[in-house]
Design a protein around this nucleic acid. Structure first.
Lengths: 132, 132
DNA sequence: ATTTTACTTTAAAATGATTCTAAACTACTT
DNA sequence: AAGTAGTTTAGAATCATTTTAAAGTAAAAT
């Protein structure tokens, strides 16, 4: 499908800027990137876009499901007095965290660890929304 | 154990400021908090501490294992073009992310969801360190 | 006990990521 | 072609965090 149609189907007005971003992000292989990474790539493609627009577009793309934001890239550090190995419920509306003790979760199958690396810890976040 | 000894055992010089923080954090029940939350509580206890010192102490406490930092509270947003349900390896040294497709992980047992809430998604982060 | 040394705290400035603002612009509708 | 509602822009503002350099303090060495 053409990117202009992907934008329309996502309910986004297909502006010049959004098409530039769609052309970079929505074809080709998946990737992880920051707003600044994307702005650099926009420059490299011979275009220009203000950083405000990059952020704005990313937010719209995310809200309409064209991309995701990695869950654990939040802007404020949260500390935890619980130093045992444990996991968290995350109340998506309030940001509140609730501990999940380790024995409440069992991983039945783990992926193969990339060669040359060791598993140095597993963090599980279970997001919660209010029951309706 | 007295907090002054917890600090010493952690290899931290027990300064007045670190003891104030230890008294707030290391007794009583576990909790999640930001640097600003802690500074407010320091104020509420009739003490004062510059925000720089609060950050500095939290970093030292964390590095010596007295507290933890919640894994997914990082300062830069990371976006992901992979909108399927999936998880991530996190290279702790470089911050690089690698996708883990959903069928590579099986959760054998999940904790009971707090009443009034629904599970709205599970994110798993497997941290990697270089094999030595 | 005093001096020395290395580490720590502080206020303030600096940085970095992100959001906001108000004016100019543009896609879509009438 | 004109209207309107949404979008982009530069730049300012904000927020979290780190850095800086000077003053202060705990521990080690005399």
């Amino acid at each position: 499908m053409k990117n202009i149609d992907k934008l329309r189907r996502a309910g986004l007005r297909p502006t010049k800027q959004r098409l530039i971003i769609a052309d970079i992000l929505l074809d080709g292989p998946n990737r992880h990137f920051t707003a600044e990474d994307l702005q650099d790539e926009i420059c490299a493609s011979g275009n220009y876009m203000s950083i405000g627009t990059v952020y704005n577009c990313l937010k719209r793309f995310k809200n309409s499901g064209l991309i995701k934001q990695v869950e654990y890239s939040k802007d404020t550090a949260i500390f935890d007095t619980n130093t045992t190995f444990h996991h968290h419920f995350l109340n998506e509306e309030t940001g509140e965290l609730i501990d999940i003790e380790n024995d409440k979760v069992i991983l039945g199958k783990l992926p193969e660890i990339p060669s040359g690396f060791l598993n140095s810890g597993v963090d599980i976040i279970i997001k919660l929304k209010k029951h309706t």
